[in-house]
Every structure is written in C-alpha cells, then in structure tokens.
C-alpha cells in the first residue's frame, strides 16, 4: 500500500506542481491566442485522423498476429511493436528516410506530385507510426484472452470466416478496441519528437500543441504552462470518456448473450 502511494504521488505530484505555476489571471487570453487555438485544432484533427488510421491498419494486424501462426511471427510481432520502444526522434529520422524528398518512397510520391515534407500529412504519418503499436498490442492481447471457443462454435454452426469475424470476434473485443484506440489517440496527441524531426513546425500546418508548448517556453513560460494544462485536461477527458464507453460497450455485449 505504502509503495503504491509513493507510486501514485510520483505520477500526480508533477501535475500538481504544474498547476501551482499556472498564471490564472492570464490563463484565458494565453490559451485562446490565435497560435494556441491553431495548435489545439491541428492537434485534435491530426490525432483523430491518426487514430482512424491506427484502427484501419491495426485491427487486421492484431487479428493476424492473434489468430494465425506462421514462421517468423514472433520476430514480426517484435518489429511491429518497435515504435513503442524507439526514441521518437529516431522514429522521425527513419520516417524522413522513408517519406522525405530523398527517401525510399518520397521520390515516387514526388513523381506523383505528392509532397509529404512539411505538410499536415507528415504530422499524421508520424503520429500513426508511434501510436499504431498501442492499438495492435491491446487488441491482440484481448483476442488471445477471449480465445477461439465461440468462434469455433460459430463455425460449426455454419458461419463463414468473415461472418465469424464480424459477428463474434470483433464484438467480443470492442472494449479492448476502444481502449486501444484511446491509447493511440493519447499517444498521437502527445507526439513530439518524430513530428519535430520529420514534419517541421509551422503554425496551422505542422505545429501541434506539444510543438507550440516547446516553442512558447522559449519566450513565454506562462503560455507554455497554460497550454500544458490544456493538453493534460484534453487527455484526461478523452481517457475518462473512453473508459465510460468501454464499460458500456462491454455491458451491452454481456446483456443479450
């Protein structure tokens, strides 16, 4: 218990310390300045897009990793989870060499008239890259925990594999999908290093909230603290909302069955 309390204090105390430094008299003007609102809007838009991409790409990945077996699967899983342990700046450099103007794919994109460098697309790519493992990891864990019994029953009753996936497998893991998506969203919202190294920083285009905070700190620490608080509040609201959604989703599933 005592150690748990120390752990909780370790997480909460820095947040409390930050709140004590907020300049409340100037708080509203600081967080509603044009550059702050641009950064917040951009962060929400790009993080939501990145979360959608994570679901789109991550669900098939998790299903394949949890439900099939093939040679090299363990190695593949470790590699897929690599962005989780990679320092974000390293991820940014890797993305630069992939999607940059001189990168592996960047040159083909350039030929097609698509420029990723310094665009909002680059921000979404960076966020998706770092957030994807969170979705894959939580969904794959849930798929393994649920097991294949219900799926097997469905199949013996004549359901096709796609029907099994749609009617049995996915509904069973909705709570995990929601919490995985929330984790991905939170990670995308906080993404900093890869964006800085890969996308650049321009108001309204690539300067997300964490980059704005980093920049404001140079001249206006009050603004940086105020924006940090906004970021924390957004993150807490999202996590709480998703927790609620996950619980009701789970309840709905348990109800009829």
């Amino acid at each position: 218990m005592a150690v748990a309390a120390v752990g909780a204090a370790f997480v909460l105390l820095p947040l409390v310390a930050m709140v004590t430094r907020v300049n409340w008299a100037e708080f509203v003007p600081l967080v509603t300045s044009e550059s702050s609102l641009d950064a917040l809007g951009l962060s929400l838009r790009t993080s939501l897009t990145a979360t959608a991409l994570c679901v789109l790409l991550g669900v098939p990945m998790a299903v394949v990793l949890a439900r099939t077996e093939f040679w090299g699967q363990r190695i593949l899983r470790s590699l897929v989870l690599l962005p989780l342990v990679l320092p974000p700046v390293v991820g940014g450099i890797a993305l630069l060499y992939t999607f940059g103007r001189r990168g592996l794919l960047g040159q083909s994109f350039e030929a097609l008239g698509v420029t990723v460098a310094f665009s909002t697309t680059a921000v979404v790519i960076a966020q998706t890259f770092v957030a994807l493992p969170f979705l894959v990891l939580s969904l794959e864990g849930a798929l393994r925990a649920v097991g294949t019994r219900y799926e097997a029953v469905g199949a013996t009753l004549g359901a096709r594999p796609t029907t099994v996936l749609r009617r049995i497998t996915l509904p069973l893991v909705v709570p995990a999908l929601v919490s995985g998506a929330v984790l991905s969203f939170a990670r995308a919202l906080g993404e900093f290093g890869a964006t800085l190294a890969f996308a650049g920083s321009l108001q309204g285009v690539t300067r997300t909230l964490p980059l704005e905070i980093y920049l404001q700190r140079e001249t206006d620490p009050d603004a940086a603290v105020a924006l940090s608080l906004v970021l924390v509040v957004v993150a807490v609201v999202v996590v709480a909302a998703a927790h609620q959604a996950g619980r009701s989703g789970g309840a709905r599933l348990r109800g009829p069955s």
């Binding site: 460098a117 310094f118 800085l196 190294a197 996308a199 650049g200 920083s201 321009l202 108001q203 690539t206 300067r207 980059l211 980093y214 920049l215 140079e218």
Partner: peptide, 11 residues
C-alpha cells in the same frame, strides 16, 4: 514565407 519555423538552429 518559410515551409517551417524550427525551434532551434540545429533543426
């Protein structure tokens, strides 16, 4: 009209 305004000269 820059394509990016970085936080440090290194960037």
């Amino acid at each position: 009209a820059p394509v990016s305004e970085e936080s440090s000269v290194t960037d």
